[in-house]
């Protein structure tokens, strides 16, 4: 149960960062934390205690394998996360170029 708890703590930290931090980069980091927590959670789902990795080709008897699919999925999700994070950071840098600040509360030209 502990790993799941860790997951949730990571998730909450991420939320905390997004909600309270004013710096764009910190928000991006918080967002990454969120993403990691979800990925971690996904990876944990496939885990089974004392199970083998599912790579044996010929087995004589039924064995307890770890579920391989979540790992594949997490890999995909990490790639997607990479893409979003990269885009997020590049936009943040462009914003800094234009606004000369990282403070999210200063960046409010679009309102009402």
């Amino acid at each position: 149960m502990l790993p799941y708890l860790g997951c949730i703590i990571l998730f909450l930290i991420g939320i905390y960062a997004i909600l309270t931090k004013r710096n764009l980069i910190k928000i991006a980091i918080g967002f990454c934390l969120l993403e990691y927590s979800v990925n971690l959670f996904f990876a944990f789902i496939g885990y089974k205690k004392d199970a083998l990795a599912p790579i044996y080709a010929n087995l004589s008897q039924a064995r307890n394998f770890v579920d391989p699919i979540p790992q594949a999925l997490v890999l995909t999700a990490i790639v997607i996360g990479l893409g979003t994070t990269a885009l997020l950071l590049s936009v943040a840098l462009r914003i800094y170029e234009k606004y000369k600040t990282f403070d999210i509360k200063e960046i409010k030209r679009l309102k009402e």
Binding site: L24, I27, L34, V38, F41, L88, R94, L110
Partner: peptide, 24 residues
Amino acid sequence: EKEDLEASFKYQIIGEIAGLTILL
């Protein structure tokens, strides 16, 4: 432009929260 980037950033943050929730 200034506004474009701002909009995109906000859109990304909120959109990705949605995406992560869906993933979860």
